[in-house]
Structure formats: C-alpha cells, structure tokens
C-alpha cells in the first residue's frame, strides 16, 4: 500500500497572476506530492467540485486580488454544504489582520510573499494526513 499526499492547488476569482502558484505547485511536486493544478479563474464552486472528485487531502488557493476574505469564506461554506472535510490553506498578498480573520474562519494556514517553498512543504508534511477508506 502506497499512501501519497494529494493536493489541489489553484487560482480562484478574477486574478491572472499565476507565476507564484506555479512555482509552489512545482515545489510541491518535487517534494513528492501529487498536485492537481486547476489553472486560472476558477469559481469557488468549481474548486470545491474538483477537490471532491479528485479526493484530495487539502486545497491550497493562491489569491492576489484582495478578495481573499470573500473567496475563502465561500469555499469553506461550499465544502461544509457538501459535507466534505478537506483542509484549506492558501497564500497571496494578505494583510496580517486578515490572516487572523481567515484562521478564525477555518483556513488552516496562509503564506505571504517571501515565504520559502520549503516552509510550505514542511507545513504540509506536519499538518496534512493522506485520507483513507
């Protein structure tokens, strides 16, 4: 039996900046995770549907548009509505006070510019458990 961490990494909302998220996706791949990359401009509905179909262990969202509070809230709400218990983390240009709000909302972690990819990998290794039957 070979257990692997599977992650959905994506961009949600009107935000065309994907260089950062591609670097993160690549780093996670190199760390030995299976990464499903969604591409740009996904709706929260699409993200949640994809995460469920793909059976991922966590959802990582990159948001540089400033709409992080609304988008994360919507994703968390939809997950709850569908009965899915998938941890959500993210990254982007997020002010410290909003990180507090996001964590209160249920977002597990938020990485800001300057975060090392190793830090993200370590956080996943420490916090994300591969699901089983």
């Amino acid at each position: 039996m070979e257990k692997k961490v599977r992650l959905l990494i994506g961009k949600v909302g009107l935000d065309g900046h994907d260089r950062g998220v591609k670097i993160v996706a690549r780093a996670l791949r190199d760390a030995g995770f299976e990464v499903i990359y969604t591409g740009l401009h996904q709706t929260p509905e699409a993200i949640v549907n994809m995460a469920i179909q793909e059976g991922v262990d966590a959802i990582g969202l990159s948001i540089l548009s400033g709409a992080h509070l609304e988008l994360f809230e919507r994703v968390l709400h939809l997950l709850k509505e569908k009965g899915a218990t998938i941890p959500v983390f993210g990254g982007g240009i997020i002010p410290p006070e909003d990180i507090v709000a996001l964590k209160k909302m249920g977002v597990k972690e938020a990485f800001t510019p300057g975060a090392l990819t190793d830090q993200i990998v370590k956080w996943i290794e420490d916090n994300i458990v591969p699901q089983s039957l």
């Binding site: 791949r29 190199d30 995770f33 299976e34 990464v35 499903i36 990359y37 994809m50």
Partner: peptide, 11 residues
C-alpha cells in the same frame, strides 16, 4: 525521482 506529480489535464 521523487514520486511527485503535477496533474494538469483537467485545466
């Protein structure tokens, strides 16, 4: 090398 993968078909 790492067993990791980037799955991008569904984009």
């Amino acid at each position: 090398f790492t067993g990791g993968a980037l799955l991008g078909d569904r984009i």
